[in-house]
Amino acid sequence: MLVIKDLHANVAGKEILKGVNLEIHAGEVHAIMGPNGSGKSTLAKVLAGHPLVEITKGSISYEGKDLTAFAPEERALQGIFMAFQYPVEIPGVNNAGFLRMAYNAKRKKHGLSELDPIEFDNVLQAKIKMVEIPEQFLDRAVNHGFSGGEKKRNEILQMAVLEPKLAVLDETDSGLDIDALRSVAEGVNRLKRSDNAMILVTHYQRLLDYIIPDFVHILLGGRIVKSGDKSLALEVEKKGYDWLQ
């Protein structure tokens, strides 16, 4: 599904990714761990097409196509979704309206008719049950005045609505207390299928107690220095990152 080869990328003129190689297939869950500043978030952003990340070398192939040629909205329509580490507040834009707009953009892409607010509400009701989100979320402006935990849940709601093929969760666990973490993780687990894949970018092993990865990669200094199964995450938890350098 996704093949990243020798990827180098700059943020504000500084090289952050220094040759990343990664291959992901449908049905897999990959965890990317690493200390602060190792390039985890940059890797997530580069997949979503963030305008401040500049690719200088290497390639990203998604379903056989050159992903870097696509604008952010086109990537989303092709099935890529990034859950933001810091979801953006958009005052004045209604959450339900925004979700419908995104949902309809995808339907349009697939040649389906757009849903009106009433039809879409049926879709939405099922999704909010699935990810256990209070209905009041829908009437508020997108992330505006949401607590940290509410913002993260709202990301998962968007993911549930858009049903991506490849979801990149950028530190979705950060800032969550243990109950919120469990509930977010359960939401994510319900969205796991054999035909989609997930990349979990995380700082701590604790998220991986709830969402079990098939592969764990350690990103250090802009490169993946070690890959393994879930036991690697436990090892890192115990020993830190220093031994990998």
Partner: peptide, 9 residues
Amino acid sequence: FYLRSRGIS
């Protein structure tokens, strides 16, 4: 960018 990343043009 946030809106575009959700498929909105």
